[in-house]
Protein backbone atom coordinates (compact mmCIF):
# COMPACT_ATOMS: atom_id res chain seq x y z
CA UNK A 1 0.00 0.00 0.00
CA UNK A 2 2.71 2.47 -0.94
CA UNK A 3 0.39 5.28 -1.95
CA UNK A 4 -1.37 5.63 1.34
CA UNK A 5 1.74 5.96 3.43
CA UNK A 6 3.78 7.97 0.98
CA UNK A 7 4.22 11.59 1.89
CA UNK A 8 5.49 14.17 -0.48
CA UNK A 9 9.18 14.93 -0.38
CA UNK A 10 10.56 17.54 1.93
CA UNK A 11 11.25 20.05 -0.80
CA UNK A 12 7.66 19.78 -1.91
CA UNK A 13 6.47 20.27 1.60
CA UNK A 14 8.53 23.37 1.79
CA UNK A 15 7.36 24.81 -1.45
CA UNK A 16 3.66 24.32 -1.06
CA UNK A 17 0.82 26.48 0.07
CA UNK A 18 -2.93 26.34 -0.08
CA UNK A 19 -4.92 27.65 -2.97
CA UNK A 20 -2.55 28.15 -5.86
CA UNK A 21 -5.38 27.32 -8.23
CA UNK A 22 -6.36 29.91 -10.81
CA UNK A 23 -9.36 32.18 -10.31
CA UNK A 24 -11.71 30.30 -12.60
CA UNK A 25 -11.59 27.37 -10.27
CA UNK A 26 -14.59 25.27 -11.04
CA UNK A 27 -13.86 25.18 -14.71
CA UNK A 28 -10.17 25.01 -13.95
CA UNK A 29 -7.79 22.53 -15.43
CA UNK A 30 -8.01 18.90 -14.46
CA UNK A 31 -4.76 17.63 -15.90
CA UNK A 32 -3.88 14.02 -16.47
CA UNK A 33 -1.05 13.73 -13.96
CA UNK A 34 -1.16 14.15 -10.22
CA UNK A 35 0.16 17.60 -9.50
CA UNK A 36 0.84 18.62 -5.95
CA UNK A 37 0.79 22.24 -4.91
CA UNK A 38 4.51 21.93 -4.32
CA UNK A 39 5.07 20.78 -7.88
CA UNK A 40 2.96 23.71 -9.08
CA UNK A 41 5.04 26.18 -7.12
CA UNK A 42 8.23 24.59 -8.46
CA UNK A 43 6.93 24.90 -12.01
CA UNK A 44 6.28 28.58 -11.40
CA UNK A 45 9.71 29.06 -9.87
CA UNK A 46 11.54 27.45 -12.75
CA UNK A 47 10.02 29.96 -15.13
CA UNK A 48 10.91 32.93 -12.96
CA UNK A 49 14.20 34.48 -14.20
CA UNK A 50 14.70 36.10 -10.80
CA UNK A 51 14.68 32.65 -9.21
CA UNK A 52 16.88 31.07 -11.86
CA UNK A 53 19.56 33.77 -11.52
CA UNK A 54 19.47 33.92 -7.72
CA UNK A 55 19.25 30.15 -7.46
CA UNK A 56 22.32 29.61 -9.65
CA UNK A 57 24.21 32.24 -7.66
CA UNK A 58 23.28 30.59 -4.39
CA UNK A 59 24.40 27.22 -5.72
CA UNK A 60 27.71 28.70 -6.83
CA UNK A 61 28.23 30.39 -3.46
CA UNK A 62 27.43 27.17 -1.60
CA UNK A 63 29.85 25.25 -3.81
CA UNK A 64 32.62 27.80 -3.23
CA UNK A 65 31.96 27.72 0.51
CA UNK A 66 32.23 23.95 0.51
CA UNK A 67 35.30 23.61 -1.71
CA UNK A 68 37.21 26.89 -1.87
CA UNK A 69 40.40 24.97 -2.60
CA UNK A 70 39.08 23.93 -6.01
CA UNK A 71 39.13 27.53 -7.20
CA UNK A 72 42.56 28.58 -6.06
CA UNK A 73 45.80 27.11 -4.82
CA UNK A 74 46.78 30.31 -3.03
CA UNK A 75 46.64 30.39 0.73
CA UNK A 76 44.24 32.83 2.28
CA UNK A 77 46.21 33.11 5.49
CA UNK A 78 49.86 33.23 4.47
CA UNK A 79 50.95 36.23 2.44
CA UNK A 80 54.21 37.90 1.61
CA UNK A 81 53.98 41.53 2.70
CA UNK A 82 57.33 42.29 1.16
CA UNK A 83 56.35 41.07 -2.29
CA UNK A 84 52.66 41.80 -2.58
CA UNK A 85 51.92 44.68 -0.21
CA UNK A 86 48.53 46.04 -1.39
CA UNK A 87 49.11 44.81 -4.92
CA UNK A 88 46.57 46.09 -7.45
CA UNK A 89 44.07 43.68 -8.93
CA UNK A 90 44.92 42.14 -12.27
CA UNK A 91 41.51 41.67 -13.83
CA UNK A 92 42.93 39.85 -16.83
CA UNK A 93 44.25 37.04 -14.62
CA UNK A 94 40.96 35.29 -14.16
CA UNK A 95 40.98 32.66 -11.39
CA UNK A 96 44.59 33.42 -10.59
CA UNK A 97 46.11 34.41 -7.31
CA UNK A 98 46.45 38.10 -8.19
CA UNK A 99 43.05 38.40 -9.84
CA UNK A 100 41.67 40.64 -7.09
CA UNK A 101 45.04 41.94 -5.91
CA UNK A 102 46.56 41.69 -2.43
CA UNK A 103 45.84 43.08 0.99
CA UNK A 104 48.00 44.87 3.53
CA UNK A 105 49.78 41.68 4.60
CA UNK A 106 50.29 40.47 1.06
CA UNK A 107 47.55 37.81 1.12
CA UNK A 108 45.66 37.05 -2.09
CA UNK A 109 42.30 38.82 -1.92
CA UNK A 110 40.85 36.28 -4.35
CA UNK A 111 41.65 33.50 -1.90
CA UNK A 112 40.36 35.58 1.03
CA UNK A 113 37.01 36.15 -0.72
CA UNK A 114 36.69 32.45 -1.57
CA UNK A 115 37.58 31.18 1.90
CA UNK A 116 35.52 33.91 3.58
CA UNK A 117 32.39 32.51 1.94
CA UNK A 118 32.62 29.41 4.10
CA UNK A 119 32.25 31.16 7.44
CA UNK A 120 29.54 33.47 6.18
CA UNK A 121 27.53 30.58 4.79
CA UNK A 122 28.04 28.37 7.85
CA UNK A 123 26.88 31.12 10.15
CA UNK A 124 23.98 32.13 7.88
CA UNK A 125 22.74 28.58 7.27
CA UNK A 126 23.37 27.47 10.84
CA UNK A 127 21.48 30.33 12.39
CA UNK A 128 18.62 29.85 9.94
CA UNK A 129 18.34 26.14 10.72
CA UNK A 130 18.50 26.67 14.47
CA UNK A 131 16.01 29.50 14.36
CA UNK A 132 13.59 27.64 12.09
CA UNK A 133 13.57 24.51 14.21
CA UNK A 134 13.41 26.17 17.61
CA UNK A 135 11.34 29.21 16.64
CA UNK A 136 9.06 27.03 14.52
CA UNK A 137 8.40 24.61 17.37
CA UNK A 138 7.71 27.45 19.78
CA UNK A 139 5.36 29.04 17.25
CA UNK A 140 3.50 25.77 16.75
CA UNK A 141 3.16 25.31 20.48
CA UNK A 142 1.82 28.82 20.99
CA UNK A 143 -0.48 28.76 17.98
CA UNK A 144 -1.96 25.32 18.42
CA UNK A 145 -2.41 25.06 22.17
CA UNK A 146 -3.14 28.73 22.81
CA UNK A 147 -4.05 29.77 26.33
CA UNK A 148 -1.22 29.66 28.84
CA UNK A 149 1.48 28.51 26.39
CA UNK A 150 0.51 31.18 23.94
CA UNK A 151 0.63 33.92 26.57
CA UNK A 152 3.98 32.72 27.86
CA UNK A 153 5.66 32.37 24.48
CA UNK A 154 4.14 35.56 23.10
CA UNK A 155 5.34 37.60 26.07
CA UNK A 156 8.77 36.01 25.69
CA UNK A 157 8.94 37.02 22.03
CA UNK A 158 7.86 40.52 23.03
CA UNK A 159 10.82 40.71 25.39
CA UNK A 160 13.21 39.59 22.67
CA UNK A 161 11.72 42.01 20.19
CA UNK A 162 12.59 44.76 22.62
CA UNK A 163 16.28 43.94 22.32
CA UNK A 164 17.98 45.44 19.25
CA UNK A 165 19.32 42.48 17.31
CA UNK A 166 22.85 43.78 16.67
CA UNK A 167 23.31 45.49 20.00
CA UNK A 168 22.07 42.40 21.78
CA UNK A 169 24.44 40.10 19.92
CA UNK A 170 27.33 42.47 20.63
CA UNK A 171 26.59 42.30 24.32
CA UNK A 172 26.35 38.51 24.24
CA UNK A 173 29.48 38.04 22.13
CA UNK A 174 31.44 40.41 24.30
CA UNK A 175 31.25 37.80 27.02
CA UNK A 176 33.30 35.38 24.91
CA UNK A 177 37.00 35.79 24.36
CA UNK A 178 37.43 33.15 21.69
CA UNK A 179 34.55 33.49 19.25
CA UNK A 180 34.25 30.50 16.91
CA UNK A 181 31.54 30.18 14.24
CA UNK A 182 29.52 28.16 16.72
CA UNK A 183 29.56 30.91 19.29
CA UNK A 184 28.52 33.53 16.76
CA UNK A 185 25.87 31.21 15.43
CA UNK A 186 24.48 30.56 18.88
CA UNK A 187 24.39 34.23 19.79
CA UNK A 188 22.55 35.21 16.60
CA UNK A 189 20.08 32.32 16.93
CA UNK A 190 19.45 33.17 20.57
CA UNK A 191 18.36 36.65 19.57
CA UNK A 192 16.71 35.83 16.25
CA UNK A 193 14.28 32.94 16.87
CA UNK A 194 11.33 35.14 17.79
CA UNK A 195 10.70 36.32 14.24
CA UNK A 196 10.05 32.76 13.05
CA UNK A 197 7.96 32.08 16.15
CA UNK A 198 5.63 34.92 15.32
CA UNK A 199 5.25 33.90 11.70
CA UNK A 200 4.69 30.27 12.59
CA UNK A 201 2.20 31.12 15.34
CA UNK A 202 0.10 33.20 12.96
CA UNK A 203 0.16 30.54 10.25
CA UNK A 204 -0.78 27.79 12.70
CA UNK A 205 -3.68 29.79 14.10
CA UNK A 206 -5.11 30.34 10.63
CA UNK A 207 -4.61 26.72 9.65
CA UNK A 208 -5.96 25.11 12.79
CA UNK A 209 -9.45 26.44 12.09
CA UNK A 210 -9.45 25.10 8.53
CA UNK A 211 -12.22 22.66 7.71
CA UNK A 212 -9.82 19.84 6.91
CA UNK A 213 -8.38 20.10 10.42
CA UNK A 214 -11.90 19.98 11.86
CA UNK A 215 -12.55 16.99 9.61
CA UNK A 216 -9.50 15.20 10.97
CA UNK A 217 -10.59 15.94 14.53
CA UNK A 218 -14.04 14.60 13.73
CA UNK A 219 -12.43 11.37 12.56
CA UNK A 220 -10.76 11.07 15.94
CA UNK A 221 -7.22 11.96 14.86
CA UNK A 222 -4.70 12.60 17.64
CA UNK A 223 -2.81 15.81 18.30
CA UNK A 224 0.41 14.57 16.70
CA UNK A 225 -1.31 13.57 13.48
CA UNK A 226 -3.19 16.85 13.31
CA UNK A 227 -0.08 18.91 13.98
CA UNK A 228 2.37 17.18 11.69
CA UNK A 229 0.16 15.83 8.95
CA UNK A 230 -2.44 18.58 8.60
CA UNK A 231 -1.23 21.82 10.15
CA UNK A 232 2.53 21.85 9.59
CA UNK A 233 2.53 21.16 5.82
CA UNK A 234 -0.02 23.91 5.34
CA UNK A 235 1.54 26.44 7.68
CA UNK A 236 5.19 26.03 6.72
CA UNK A 237 5.18 28.17 3.56
CA UNK A 238 5.46 31.63 5.15
CA UNK A 239 8.13 30.28 7.48
CA UNK A 240 10.20 29.06 4.52
CA UNK A 241 9.93 32.47 2.91
CA UNK A 242 10.96 34.36 6.03
CA UNK A 243 13.79 31.92 6.68
CA UNK A 244 15.21 32.30 3.16
CA UNK A 245 15.15 36.05 3.32
CA UNK A 246 16.57 36.26 6.83
CA UNK A 247 19.44 33.94 5.85
CA UNK A 248 20.84 36.94 3.98
CA UNK A 249 20.40 39.21 6.95
CA UNK A 250 22.20 36.75 9.26
CA UNK A 251 25.17 36.81 6.89
CA UNK A 252 25.13 40.59 7.05
CA UNK A 253 24.90 40.44 10.82
CA UNK A 254 27.93 38.16 11.06
CA UNK A 255 29.93 40.48 8.79
CA UNK A 256 28.86 43.54 10.71
CA UNK A 257 29.90 41.94 13.98
CA UNK A 258 33.24 40.90 12.49
CA UNK A 259 33.71 44.40 11.12
CA UNK A 260 33.16 45.76 14.62
CA UNK A 261 35.62 43.25 15.97
CA UNK A 262 32.98 41.37 17.91
CA UNK A 263 32.33 38.65 15.38
CA UNK A 264 34.64 35.76 14.57
CA UNK A 265 38.02 35.84 16.25
CA UNK A 266 40.91 37.30 14.26
CA UNK A 267 42.30 33.96 13.17
CA UNK A 268 39.23 33.01 11.15
CA UNK A 269 38.60 34.45 7.72
CA UNK A 270 35.56 36.67 7.42
CA UNK A 271 34.35 39.17 4.86
CA UNK A 272 33.41 41.48 7.69
CA UNK A 273 36.91 41.70 9.15
CA UNK A 274 38.36 42.03 5.64
CA UNK A 275 36.07 44.98 5.02
CA UNK A 276 37.21 46.40 8.31
CA UNK A 277 40.87 46.00 7.24
CA UNK A 278 40.10 47.53 3.86
CA UNK A 279 38.65 50.74 5.23
CA UNK A 280 42.06 52.01 6.29
CA UNK A 281 43.29 51.88 2.69
CA UNK A 282 40.10 53.14 1.07
CA UNK A 283 41.64 56.26 -0.48
CA UNK A 284 44.55 54.75 -2.34
CA UNK A 285 43.71 51.07 -2.51
CA UNK A 286 39.90 50.79 -2.70
CA UNK A 287 40.12 47.24 -4.07
CA UNK A 288 41.00 45.89 -0.63
CA UNK A 289 37.58 46.99 0.55
CA UNK A 290 35.70 46.51 -2.69
CA UNK A 291 36.13 42.78 -3.27
CA UNK A 292 35.02 41.41 0.11
CA UNK A 293 32.24 44.00 0.24
CA UNK A 294 31.11 43.02 -3.25
CA UNK A 295 31.13 39.33 -2.36
CA UNK A 296 29.03 40.07 0.71
CA UNK A 297 26.53 42.16 -1.23
CA UNK A 298 26.13 39.62 -3.99
CA UNK A 299 25.60 36.79 -1.50
CA UNK A 300 23.03 38.66 0.53
CA UNK A 301 21.25 39.87 -2.59
CA UNK A 302 21.10 36.33 -3.97
CA UNK A 303 19.40 34.99 -0.84
CA UNK A 304 16.95 37.86 -0.59
CA UNK A 305 16.07 37.59 -4.28
CA UNK A 306 15.54 33.88 -3.90
CA UNK A 307 13.30 34.50 -0.88
CA UNK A 308 11.27 36.95 -2.88
CA UNK A 309 10.87 34.52 -5.76
CA UNK A 310 9.82 31.75 -3.37
CA UNK A 311 7.31 34.04 -1.75
CA UNK A 312 5.84 34.86 -5.14
CA UNK A 313 5.55 31.19 -6.04
CA UNK A 314 3.97 30.26 -2.72
CA UNK A 315 1.56 33.14 -2.48
CA UNK A 316 -0.87 33.11 -5.39
CA UNK A 317 -2.27 36.46 -4.33
CA UNK A 318 0.89 38.17 -5.52
CA UNK A 319 0.55 36.79 -9.02
Amino acid sequence: MPDLTKTSSASEEAAAVAGSTPVITDAGPVPEKPRSLGADAWRGLRRNPLFVISGLLVLLILFVAAFPGLFTSASPTIGDPAKHFLGKPNLGHVFQEDWFGYDGTGRSLYARVLYGARNSIIVGLGVTILVTIFGGLMGMLAGYFGGFWDSLISRLTDVFFGIPFLLGSMVVLNAFTHRTVWVVMGALAFLGWTQITRVMRGAVITTKHADYVVAARALGAGTRRILFRHILPNAIAPVIVVATISLGTYIVAESTLSYLGLGLSDDSISWGSDISDGTQFIRNFPHVLLFPAGALSITVLAFIMMGDAVREALDPKLR
Partner: peptide, 23 residues
Amino acid sequence: DPYTSLNPRMTVGDIIGEPFEIH
Protein backbone atom coordinates in the same frame (compact mmCIF):
# COMPACT_ATOMS: atom_id res chain seq x y z
CA ASP B 1 -17.13 23.82 1.60
CA PRO B 2 -15.45 21.24 -0.61
CA TYR B 3 -12.62 23.70 -1.20
CA THR B 4 -11.52 23.94 2.42
CA SER B 5 -12.52 20.58 3.85
CA LEU B 6 -9.84 18.60 2.02
CA ASN B 7 -6.19 19.01 3.00
CA PRO B 8 -4.56 20.53 -0.10
CA ARG B 9 -1.26 18.84 0.71
CA MET B 10 -2.61 15.29 0.67
CA THR B 11 -3.51 13.10 -2.27
CA VAL B 12 -7.04 11.86 -2.67
CA GLY B 13 -5.84 8.41 -1.66
CA ASP B 14 -4.34 9.78 1.55
CA ILE B 15 -7.48 11.76 2.33
CA ILE B 16 -9.90 8.89 1.89
CA GLY B 17 -7.42 6.48 3.48
CA GLU B 18 -6.86 8.58 6.58
CA PRO B 19 -9.89 7.16 8.45
CA PHE B 20 -8.25 3.70 8.17
CA GLU B 21 -5.02 5.03 9.64
CA ILE B 22 -6.85 6.54 12.60
CA HIS B 23 -9.02 3.44 13.08
